[in-house]
């Protein structure tokens, strides 16, 4: 063991230098979801299957769309799996810490830019 301890002196630390050096997450990492309102048909399957009850269906221009409470979300991605139109996509974004929990509510918003292009 002493050999191992001594050799450790000349090695670099095993820990990561976060936040100066951001770790690279592998693809397929379950980070914050990206919701695409144009693909959503408002079926509500994501809200029904959510184990943490973190998805609420709210009215957007008369149609039901999901609102994500990221403070309740357990990042299991069942919503992305249940969505019949792939409107909920994955991302590797994980830095979600916030001092205000209202910032963690993701409201469904109409993508105006995309609509004007079309």
């Amino acid at each position: 063991m002493l050999k191992e301890v001594l050799s450790q002196i000349f090695r670099k630390p095993a820990t990561q230098k976060y936040p100066e050096v951001k770790p690279k997450v592998p693809d397929g990492f379950r980070g914050r979801q990206i919701f695409d309102i144009d693909l959503c048909i408002g079926c509500g399957l994501c809200a029904r299957d959510c184990p943490a009850k973190a998805i609420e269906m709210v009215d957007v221009e008369g149609k039901k769309k999901p609102l994500f409470h990221l403070d309740l979300c357990i990042f299991c991605y069942q919503c992305a799996e249940s969505c019949p139109r792939n409107a909920i996509k994955t991302s590797g974004f994980f830095e979600l810490a916030s001092t205000n929990k209202h910032e963690l509510v993701v409201k469904p918003q109409i993508n105006l830019q995309k609509r004007s292009e079309a």
Partner: peptide
């Protein structure tokens, strides 16, 4: 909870 939701519950 439903069976589907229970998978995530028992996991915890």
């Amino acid at each position: 909870r439903t069976y589907l939701q229970d998978i995530y519950l028992v996991e915890r």
